[in-house]
């Protein structure tokens, strides 16, 4: 079954009560942040807190990511020294500009893995592009390492770089989101959308989630537990979608059994992409727990 990454929840790395309970809200991935949510003079404290928490606490199987500081800051290298050793599933690199940024970080991770006897390659990577340059290089960045499982867009810094601001319809982000999606699909990795910071504007949030789902994103970063259910609801296929997908797959299996190359449903021809989409809908529904897969083939990256 493929891994759902509909929601990736940011958790400020220097807040013990948030760090200890991070997994209880049901986000698909929890991301402890050592970067922007931590004040400069608390970088040491946050690093040690996340380090000790990951060493000692049981997050009951929730996927754990840690966003480190960039290697161009005085904290990035030290963050890696600490975090690699406690083996989160994913290390997220902020503000990636070039594929070299990913390779540099990979080299250090590899070095530490080797030193500690951790199987090389076991820690995955995610990169966030947050500037015009990063977005333009998204294609190379997304393909820079076998460890990469996803690429994300960070909108706040990006719109500043573009000399504009964020709007509710997200027009200013359309080109960048599309570029990141193209890069992700080309590399066969996940595409994750940016945060929506006005926690109180639920309607605006719903619209944005629908929008990015329609664009093709696998999920969205969230900053508040309240946002999790909204995203999951929108990303869960409706009973109608499930029903239709089931029928498409049945028809496809039928055709395969008959040795027929042509799949048809209700007298209409069904193309290969439609079959793939139906498979995906059922995988998503299965992962979301609303559908029991029976021998169907799940899509995995």
């Amino acid at each position: 079954m493929f891994k759902l990454r509909r929601t990736m929840m940011y958790v400020p790395g220097n807040n013990p009560s948030m760090v200890k309970d991070a997994h209880i809200f049901g986000a698909d991935t929890v991301m402890f942040d050592l970067e922007d949510s931590v004040a400069l003079n608390e970088k040491d404290a946050a690093r040690l807190l996340v380090y000790n928490a990951l060493k000692r606490l049981d997050y009951e199987g929730t996927e754990i990511a840690v966003r480190i500081n960039g290697l161009d800051t005085p904290y990035g290298r030290e963050d890696l020294e600490a975090i690699v050793r406690v083996r989160p599933h994913i290390i997220r690199l902020p503000k990636a500009e070039t594929s070299k940024d990913v390779r540099d970080i990979e080299a250090i991770i590899e070095e530490i893995e080797a030193k500690e006897g951790i199987p090389v390659g076991s820690i995955q990577l995610m990169a966030a592009v947050e500037s015009a340059r990063g977005v333009l290089n998204a294609r190379e960045i997304a393909a820079a390492s076998k460890r990469l499982v996803g690429i994300a867009i960070g909108a706040e810094d990006f719109v500043t770089d573009m000399q504009t601001t964020r709007s509710l319809d997200g027009m200013e982000l359309l080109a960048a989101r599309s570029q990141v999606l193209l890069a992700a699909r080309n590399a066969g990795i996940y595409a994750l959308d940016t945060v929506f910071s006005d926690v109180n504007n639920e309607e605006g949030f719903i619209n944005e989630v629908k929008h990015i789902k329609q664009l093709g994103f696998d999920g969205k970063s969230v900053i508040n537990p309240r946002q999790i259910d909204v995203v999951h609801r929108i990303y869960t296929p409706t009973p109608q979608e499930i029903h239709r997908s089931e029928r498409i797959l049945k028809a496809s299996e039928e055709a395969a059994r008959k040795g027929s190359g042509v799949v048809s449903l209700d007298g209409k021809m069904v193309d290969k992409p439609i079959i793939e989409r139906a498979q995906r809908v059922l995988s998503l529904a299965t992962a979301a727990g609303t559908y029991e897969l029976e021998g169907g083939e799940a899509i995995a990256y």
């Binding site: 013990p16 200890k20 040690l48 807190l49 000790n52 928490a53 060493k55 000692r56 606490l57």
Partner: peptide, 12 residues
């Protein structure tokens, strides 16, 4: 505080 939090704060 949990034990790991005490550890982290004291180390810091």
């Amino acid at each position: 505080a949990l034990d790991c939090v005490i550890r982290a704060r004291l180390q810091t």
